[in-house]
């Protein structure tokens, strides 16, 4: 059972409060603001070394991009999505729910997937006005960006919610079952918590949804 606000006890005691207070005061003290650059700090390294490091880093990034198939210059560790094409289906996995939407768009476009960026509320309005169904990855609930596909009215799930009870965007949580499940709510689309597979001939539109 949840303890309501009025009954909640503090989760730090006086001693811990004092420790955190002292710590914060140290961090914001003027001395901390102008802390001297320590010996051997990278800012003091000769420009030649810095330039060489940059060249080596760039080479490393390019190599990484070649192995992941991502856009040139995008290190594998920072890719927002992973895309696979297999047996007539394209699978998109959202790797970073806090990714920059423009970066997600760039990655999708570079992989040949047409997409657009939409806000959560605008997409809801569009779906309500046009009768389309929006299928979201459930990753929406924890991040600032998620992916969705737009299903035209004639291909929407056979029994759609009535307009009066139309789900708000993000309802994919309700549509996709428990975490990890992948369901096929419409022909040619499978969708799960952080991945979706679209049959290449289905022609659904992919949308990057900014959930903030």
């Amino acid at each position: 059972m949840i303890t309501p606000h009025a009954m909640v006890e503090p989760t730090i005691d006086d001693e811990r409060h004092a420790q955190l207070r002292s710590y914060l005061l140290r961090e914001v003290s003027p001395a901390a603001d102008v802390a001297p650059v320590p010996r051997g700090h990278p800012h003091r390294r000769p420009l030649l070394v810095t330039g060489l490091a940059a060249v080596l880093a760039a080479a490393g990034l390019t190599t990484a991009a070649m192995f992941t198939g991502g856009p040139t210059g995008t290190p594998a560790a920072e890719a927002a999505v992973a895309i696979e094409h297999e047996e007539g289906w394209t699978t998109i996995r959202l790797l970073d729910v806090n990714a920059d939407p423009d970066a997600v768009l760039a990655e999708l476009l570079s992989a040949g997937i047409d997409a657009r960026i939409h806000t959560y509320d605008d997409l809801y309005t569009e779906a309500r006005d046009t009768g389309t169904e929006i299928l979201y990855m459930t990753a929406a609930t924890d991040g600032t960006v998620t992916l969705a596909v737009i299903i035209p009215p004639d291909l929407a799930p056979a029994v759609a919610p009535s307009s009066a009870a139309a789900p708000h965007p993000g309802d994919a949580t309700d549509d996709t079952g428990p975490v990890g499940d992948v369901v096929e709510p419409a022909p040619g689309i499978r969708i799960g918590q952080s991945e979706m597979s679209i049959r290449d001939d289905a022609g659904y539109e992919v949308v990057i949804v900014v959930t903030d």
Binding site: Y120, A140, T141, D142, G143, H168, P169, G170, D171, T173, D174, V179, T211
Partner: peptide, 9 residues
């Protein structure tokens, strides 16, 4: 409340 959209949570 895991299944609620983040905004509602």
């Amino acid at each position: 409340i895991r299944r609620l959209p983040r905004r509602e949570r």
